[in-house]
Design a protein around this nucleic acid. Structure first.
Length: 258
DNA sequence: ATTCCGGCAGAGC
DNA sequence: TGCTCTGCCGGAA
């Protein structure tokens, strides 16, 4: 075995510190930008893997310093100002469709990651219940845990947890408060009054008697049902008993086991 | 309508 | 480790 000379070691270390990889900074410290969003401005943090953290910048109290502090306490690392925006960020904010965005969601538990993955698939202008998310990810009884996971969504607005609402027709809670959740949904043309009117009548699903398909009220297909053929249901079981089957697009309930 | 528990994942101790 | 508590809920009473 060769014993290394201390001078050789020092020289080797010197070379290490003198020649870091060109992208070293990007790998260790993320960047942040402030951009216009649907509810005022947003702070957006990202790494070379994708967008990692989003907060609103609307309130006076939500200063850049507070954002940077919040980021540091959650990720235990700093941010530096970005030179340019993450690809696709502005179109995603404009359309509410974040399908092509890259996210850096390392650090989430597998459960939380699957919750966000299901949530991401809810189209703009539509809503799904917490219980729907739970069922989609194969944990139908983890309804409350879904709410907890969404409460920790590091990238709200972009991964649209505001589109997850309560089964009883109420919008439910939200990181930035129920009022902001309502504003976001109205901006996407969700008719909250109609949903609540239906809920008051104990209607949580809508079917078409011409197709025999039953949907969530905000499903793209439900919006096409003409009034004369529209029928409301209190539960999927009630709809199935009436000869309807759940829509395969919005998947409002377990498909009939033929 | 309201209230009350059950289910469950994760954080904190 | 294991135990306890809490939380963007749901459904039954």
């Amino acid at each position: 075995m060769t014993v290394l000379d201390p001078d050789q070691i020092a020289e080797a270390l010197g070379q290490l510190s003198a020649a870091p990889p060109a992208d070293f900074l990007d790998r260790v410290v993320g960047q942040w930008v402030r951009v216009a969003g649907p509810v005022g401005e947003l702070y957006v943090a990202f790494t070379d893997h994708g967008i990692s953290y989003v907060r609103t910048a609307g309130a006076v109290a939500d200063s850049p310093a507070r954002f940077l502090d919040a980021y540091r306490s959650r990720f235990t690392r700093p941010l530096r100002p970005a030179e340019r925006l993450p690809a696709g960020l502005l179109p995603a904010l404009r359309t509410g469709r974040s399908g092509s965005l890259r996210f850096d969601l390392r650090g989430l538990t597998p459960f939380a990651a699957s919750v966000l993955d299901a949530t991401r698939r809810i189209p703009a202008g539509q809503t799904r219940p917490y219980a729907w998310v739970a069922r989609e990810i194969g944990r139908p009884a983890a309804v409350r845990a879904v709410g907890t996971a969404l409460g920790g969504n590091p990238v709200p607005i972009l991964i649209p947890c505001h589109r997850v609402t309560r089964s009883d027709g109420q919008v439910g809670d939200y990181v930035f408060g129920t009022a902001v959740k309502e504003t976001l949904l109205r901006a996407e043309d969700v008719d909250l009054e109609r949903i609540q009117d239906l809920a008051r009548a104990r209607v949580f699903y809508l079917g078409s008697d011409t197709t025999g398909i039953v949907c969530f009220p905000t499903c793209h297909h439900a919006r096409r049902i003409t009034a004369a053929h529209r029928r409301g249901f209190r539960s999927i079981g009630e709809a199935v008993d009436a000869g309807y089957r759940p829509c395969q697009v919005c998947r409002p309930g377990a498909a009939a086991t033929a």
